[in-house]
Design a binder for these strands. Structure first.
Lengths: 229, 229
DNA sequence: TCTGTTGCTGTCACTCTGACACTAAACCCT
DNA sequence: AGGGTTTAGTGTCAGAGTGACAGCAACAGA
């Protein structure tokens, strides 16, 4: 069966801004483009949405294809939609960007197509020329995360299920690019009821005093919020 | 010229959540649907995006068609994109919702098509059954506004260029549905540098002591933020 | 057991917040 | 003209949150 139309068609895509902290760097997953346009340039993972597929489902599908990580333990939310008529030189593509945040996301080499895929520190990623308008999309995702650390539990998505207070503090310091006072930080986290709770265990094996292991306790808002600057 | 495709096409639309305060009520503009589906039901104004048209341009165009108001003095921002496969029974329509906020938006009767159009208090609007998934979209817009009042200058878009402190306070009270203390409110607004400034004039003619006229002074953030609850 | 390293907590001064009551400036009516 | 009514505008005080700061605690390894 074929469809005809008086007008050229829209293509609808999803792009993923997958963020994690790797080796102490706030990082985004990029794939190297094999073909034109922008061959050899780095771009966000993404793809076209099926005609019967929900946008969020398409985002999950792309996420799993690129990282092998299921929805479990990865936070996924809609970021924004980018639809400038000239953003793709081939067709009219409207792309809804999704933001994914996870802990310990796996190393990736070679995506579904033969092209390369790797984690980039976000500062390096936006400095180089990304394909399409992906620099703008990455910046929107990064700003969303920086902002949501202030008042939400998003920081907990950057650490494993069990984590320590210094690890959680490092999330804020890495994402915001600032240094925080550990005493004030711990006080603020502890003040929010049901934000984190003690597991009773501790992380041993490193140097120095072992840090107590914490886990999320259900609260989704940090109240009062943590403030930048 | 005709285009053919192996697959049924996507349609890309914009929907507008146009919010203002009318007669003391936080209100949204709805249009009555003339034809199927959802004939007779109320819906958000909106329409399809041209194949060479930017999403934001389409939103501006629809805004002007529906309200006669140009971009001037109306704040417009992208809200979110709604793309459930079954959200429109006819086609696959992916719709990007835009949020518009303005002061003194005009009364409207009869849109571009012959159907009716009018302002609804948002509580009445979401209570009745709106067409498509428009209830969800309205709720997203309302929540966005309630949230942005806390930390941005969005409240200034609900009042005319010159306004009084009680009028500005009424924006917060109406949108949040709470009562605020005028002393604490004025202190907080005045504390943020360059948020509002005196014009030297006063609003006369009403009952009681005339209120001094203020205007926006350039700051786009309310710091520290105004807090709900 | 000594040293190095990292985790953890308490205090104090300051600012911000929320609660609260009175004075000021206009209008209206007599 | 004066008194009453209505709305605008301000100051204080107690409690909470914040940022700056130093010292003790618990482990590993030598």
């Amino acid at each position: 069966m074929a469809y005809t139309s008086e007008y050229p068609p829209f293509y609808v895509a999803v792009d993923l801004v997958i963020l994690t902290i790797r080796d102490g760097a706030f990082s985004v997953l990029l794939v190297e483009r094999g073909g034109e346009p922008f061959a050899g340039r780095w771009a966000l993972p993404g793809g076209f949405v099926g005609i019967d597929e929900d946008l969020a489902d398409a985002a999950y599908r792309e996420l799993e294809e690129e990282t092998g990580v299921g929805a479990t333990s990865v936070h996924l939310e809609q970021l924004a939609t980018f639809g400038r008529p000239d953003r793709d030189p081939r067709h009219r593509v409207v792309s809804t960007a999704y933001l994914a945040v996870g802990a310990d996301l796996p190393e990736v080499r070679g995506g579904s197509d033969a092209s390369d895929a790797r984690w980039w520190p976000v500062s390096d990623a936006v400095r180089q020329g990304l394909a399409f308008d992906h620099r703008e999309i990455v910046e929107a995702g990064v700003e969303r995360v920086r902002s949501k650390l202030e008042y939400s539990d998003l920081a907990l998505r950057f650490v494993p299920r069990q984590f320590t207070m210094p690890e959680l503090q490092a999330v804020y310091e890495t994402v915001w690019g600032v240094e925080l006072d550990p005493r004030n930080f711990a006080r603020k986290v502890a003040r929010t009821e049901r934000f984190v709770q003690e597991t009773g265990e501790a992380r041993r094996g490193g140097r120095g005093r072992p840090a107590r292991l914490l886990e999320a306790a259900g609260a989704t808002e940090l109240m009062p919020p943590m403030r930048r600057e």
